[in-house]
Simulated assay, not measured.
Amino acid sequence: MKNIFDKEITNEVIKRVNLLTPKAKANWGKMSVSQMLAHCCVTYEIIYTDKHPKPNAFVKMLLKLFVKNAVVSEKPFTKNGKTAPQFIISDEREFEVEKKRLIAFMIKTQELGDLYFDGKESHSFGKLSAKEWNNSFYKHLDHHLTQFGV
C-alpha cells in the first residue's frame, strides 16, 4: 500500500482530487461527488475535531472485534460496503468547500507524519500503528477516488 505520509504520495492523491469536477458521477454508490468529499473529511474530523462523539466502551469493543481489520488492513474496501452513521452524508455539500477541506486535512496529516500517528489512539479502534493509520487513510481515499473515476 502506498504511504500517505510520503509527500509525493500525498501530492499524487491531491492531483487525483483536483481532477474531480462538480459534475463527476460515481461508478457505484449513491453519493454525489460533493458528498463523497465531505464523507472523506469525516475521517480527519474525527482525529482533529470534537465534532463526532466517541463510541462507548461496548461499541468500541465491537468495532475493534468486527470492523477494525477491514479498515486498517491492506485489503481493499468492497463496493457499496456499509459505513458508520457519522460517515453518512445525506445533505448536499458545496464542492469547492469540501475539496479544499479534504486537501487541507491531507496536507496536515502528511506534515504531522507517521511518527505522530504511530501509537496514536483511534476514535474507534484503540491505539494504531503508523502502518494501520496509513492503510486506513490511503485505502479510504483511493476507494472513493476510484469510485469517481480518478
Rank of each mutant, 00 (worst) to 15 (best):
V33L: 13
A57D: 00
A24T: 15
H52E: 05
V59W: 00
S34R: 03
S122W: 11
N56I: 07
G81K: 14
A84H: 00
K139A: 04
N27D: 10
T43R: 07
I107S: 00
N11F: 05
A38F: 00
F5A: 00
H143E: 04
I103H: 02
Q147S: 13
K131F: 02
Q86G: 01
P76M: 04
L128F: 10
H52W: 13
A130T: 09
Q35I: 15
A57Y: 14
R16M: 03
N135R: 07
G126T: 13
T109F: 09
L19W: 08
V13M: 09
T21S: 00
Y138I: 02
G29E: 03
D142M: 10
K30W: 11
T49D: 04
F105V: 12
K15Y: 00
F58G: 14
A104W: 03
F125I: 15
K7Y: 10
I4K: 14
F137H: 09
Y116E: 10
S136P: 15
Q147R: 15
S124D: 14
K139G: 09
H52L: 15
V71K: 10
T146R: 01
T49S: 07
V97R: 02
M31S: 08
E92A: 08
F5R: 02
S73T: 04
E12G: 05
K60C: 00
M106E: 09
V97K: 14
G126C: 07
L112A: 13
N80L: 07
E111I: 13
A104Y: 01
T146W: 05
W28M: 04
H140S: 08
V42D: 04
Y138G: 07
T21F: 04
I47M: 03
H39F: 00
L19P: 05
V71A: 03
S122N: 15
M106H: 05
A24H: 07
G81I: 14
Y116I: 02
K100L: 04
V72W: 11
A24N: 04
V59K: 04
I88A: 06
K51W: 01
P22H: 06
K15I: 14
L141A: 05
D142G: 06
L19V: 00
F87A: 14
A26W: 02
E8G: 14
N56A: 06
D142F: 13
Y48W: 09
K64F: 08
Q110S: 11
A26C: 10
A104P: 12
I9L: 01
K131A: 07
F117R: 05
L112Y: 15
H144D: 06
M106W: 07
K30I: 11
S32V: 11
K23T: 08
T43E: 00
N69M: 09
T78I: 06
V150P: 08
T10L: 00
K2I: 14
K23L: 04
I46A: 02
Y138C: 05
Q110R: 07
H39L: 08
E8M: 03
A84V: 01
A57I: 15
N27K: 15
S90F: 03
K68T: 12
I103E: 12
L62A: 13
T78S: 01
P53I: 08
V71F: 11
A24Y: 02
